[in-house]
Simulated assay, not measured.
Amino acid sequence: MELDTKLVHAGYEITAASGDVVPPLHLATTFEQRAQDDLRYFYGRGENPTREALERCLAALENAAHALVFSSGQAAGATALSLLRPGQRVVASDDVYGGTFSLFKTLTKYDIRVDYVDLTDLAAVTEAMADDVAMVWLETPTNPLLKVADIGALAELARRYEALLLVDNTFASPVLQQPLAHGADITLYSTTKFIAGHSDVIGGALVYNDDSLHGEFFGYRTAAGNIPGPLDCFLTHRGLKTLSLRVERQTRTAQHIVELLRGSPKVGAVHYPGLEEHPQRHVVERQMSGPGSIVTFEYLGDVQAMMNRCVLFACAVSLGSVRSLVECPALMTHRPIPEQDRLRLGITNNIVRLSLGIEDPHDLAKDLTDAL
């Protein structure tokens, strides 16, 4: 099946028992063992049919053996980091999401160090690698400057040092980028964003092929209890069915908005993977099927006043929703990162990030033009 068909059909087959054309919502916390022909379900913290239907669909989208879903993207990340042991090291993207930075800070108490490197610079990554590196943590495109790193080259480098390559694919979604196909060991998603797509359910996911990783992750999730509830899984799976349609529309709108921004005297630098002058344009063309719908730009004025003038763009964190959002990373999503580190990366108080929704692009353009 092609991806668009998998989005609708993967993970669930209509059964003769009821004929439901969508996966039913199983709210039970515990299961009668004597009633099961195949004894599979014991307790909802470990197993749930609604959750498993979503997981099968997510795995199918990347042709993967396994997927597990979690109560948030942070919970998925924490589960991946549970593989690490004292004395080991993580090499991570230098401009990671602020929540990821906060998650990494918790590792210091376990004697696990995180080194932040520009992962688009293979020479710098090679210099940072050593035998104590257990994981390379990659965001691509990065948040918020939209740098794009070469997954295949980093996967080869990680294998050389017997390290795992984890790719946070939240910005691209499986529609635009398939990390496992390029050699990554683990794909991470905040399913809150594009996958669920409606700003009404929080969740996360890990997608991978290795059976031993599956045993570790499933055991950790069951013990820690960082599971999503059945209703959350149902809503996420429902949102997933329109992912391709939404991403296609959002990407077209983003390209329209980029041209508007580039023509405005109130705008400085514009960051977008679809630009010809994007510094990793050759990687974008080889690795992604489209540039996506996140646009970051420098506003040459009072950012807070500009955001306050927006009407259709909600001033809110998060992204990937059917509704367009505007935020200032330095003041919002990336506030946990020390100011000197933000400034070194170019994340100033004048940097604005847009997440384009599915509204009419002309209405969005007028709203943004008025705000600028």
Rank of each mutant, 00 (worst) to 15 (best):
Y272P: 15
Y272S: 09
P273I: 09
P273W: 09
G274Y: 13
G274I: 12
L275N: 01
L275M: 15
E276W: 06
E277Y: 05
E277A: 10
E277I: 08
E277R: 07
H278Y: 13
P279N: 08
P279R: 07
P279T: 09
P279S: 03
Q280S: 14
Q280D: 12
R281I: 13
H282Y: 11
V283D: 13
V284T: 10
E285V: 14
E285F: 10
R286C: 02
R286H: 10
R286G: 07
Q287E: 15
Q287V: 06
M288F: 13
M288A: 07
M288C: 05
G290W: 04
P291S: 12
P291A: 12
P291E: 14
S293I: 01
S293G: 10
S293R: 01
I294K: 01
I294E: 00
T296N: 00
T296I: 03
Y299C: 01
Y299D: 04
L300V: 05
G301Y: 02
G301S: 04
D302L: 01
D302R: 00
D302Q: 00
V303G: 00
V303H: 02
Q304M: 02
Q304Y: 00
Q304D: 11
A305D: 12
A305H: 00
A305E: 12
M307I: 05
M307N: 03
M307K: 08
M307R: 09
N308V: 02
C310D: 07
C310A: 13
V311Q: 15
L312S: 02
L312I: 15
F313I: 06
F313T: 03
A314L: 11
A314W: 02
A314C: 04
C315M: 09
A316V: 08
V317S: 13
V317A: 14
V317C: 14
V317P: 07
V317D: 03
S318V: 03
S318M: 04
L319Q: 05
G320Y: 03
S321W: 15
S321L: 07
R323A: 10
R323N: 09
S324D: 11
L325C: 06
L325Q: 08
E327W: 04
C328R: 12
P329S: 12
P329C: 11
A330V: 10
A330P: 03
A330R: 07
L331S: 06
M332L: 13
M332V: 12
T333D: 00
H334Q: 13
H334C: 09
H334W: 01
H334V: 02
R335Y: 15
P336G: 08
P336T: 11
I337M: 09
I337P: 02
I337S: 01
I337F: 07
I337V: 15
P338S: 06
P338L: 04
E339M: 11
E339H: 04
Q340T: 08
D341L: 14
D341F: 06
D341V: 15
D341I: 14
D341K: 15
R342C: 06
R342K: 15
L343Q: 08
L343N: 11
L343D: 14
L345N: 11
L345S: 10
L345C: 11
G346K: 00
G346P: 00
G346H: 02
I347W: 09
I347N: 09
N349F: 03
N349T: 06
N349G: 12
N350I: 04
N350V: 06
N350Q: 14
N350T: 12
I351V: 14
I351F: 12
V352Q: 04
V352C: 03
V352P: 04
R353F: 06
L354T: 04
S355Y: 02
S355M: 04
L356C: 14
G357W: 10
G357H: 07
G357E: 09
